[in-house]
């Protein structure tokens, strides 16, 4: 029997395994930034790869594959946050500015990370896509399935949340963040 079109798509196990091997490290890193827990990040990577395997026949174009994987991981993480409690994970107590030795206990980046972990999932995802994945506003919007203006508003919301979280303790750090995030929300691209 001859089928009525020459086009064929297959789930090529070797190609999929090669893809997993090549991308595993970067997927785990991004997943960790999205969910903030190592074990949950492993689950997120596995779920993303299962979905990718199901969609594999229509993802021959490398650009389409990358976009699909990124979008799947991000949207899955966001949807999980609605069902699971990982988005509400308590973070370290913010140290009092006047408390002796706080700088030694908690570095600058630890503070930022703690504040990032408290962001709502979508805002955190926007931050990860823009700052870690270094996507443009337009590409970030494609991944999140929203308008570029929404990406900017999400970044603005993230800024407000970070400011509220940090301002009482580190106003100079907030000033720095405000300046830099204002540049980002104004449409700066990478």
């Amino acid at each position: 029997m001859q089928l009525p079109s020459p086009g064929r798509r297959r789930r090529d196990s070797a190609a999929f395994a090669e893809f997993v091997q090549a991308r595993s490290r970067s997927l785990h890193r991004t997943a960790y930034l999205l969910v903030g827990r190592r074990g949950l990040a492993e689950d997120l990577v596995q779920e993303t790869l299962v979905k990718t395997y199901v969609a594999w026949p229509r993802l021959r174009d490398p650009a389409a594959l990358d976009a699909y994987v990124r979008r799947t991981m991000t949207t899955t993480a966001i949807s999980w946050s609605r069902r699971r409690s990982w988005g509400e994970t308590p973070v370290e107590e913010m140290p009092d500015r006047g408390e002796a030795g706080h700088a030694e206990l908690l570095g600058e980046r630890d503070l930022v990370w703690s504040a990032v972990l408290e962001l709502p999932a979508r805002q955190r995802a926007t931050l990860v896509l823009r700052f870690y994945e270094e996507l443009s506003v337009a590409r970030t919007a494609e991944v999140l399935g929203c308008a570029p203006g929404t990406v900017k508003s999400q970044l603005s919301a993230a800024l407000s949340a970070l400011r509220e979280r940090l301002t009482a303790h580190y106003p100079e750090l907030v000033d720095q963040l405000v300046a830099e995030l204002t540049h980002e929300t104004a449409g700066g691209t990478r």
Binding site: R29, V112, F131
Partner: peptide, 16 residues
């Protein structure tokens, strides 16, 4: 680029 946020995310991502 916001160097501090990127450095923070890069550091956390690579840590593990």
């Amino acid at each position: 680029m916001n160097a501090l946020i990127k450095q923070t995310l890069d550091e956390r991502a690579a840590d593990g």
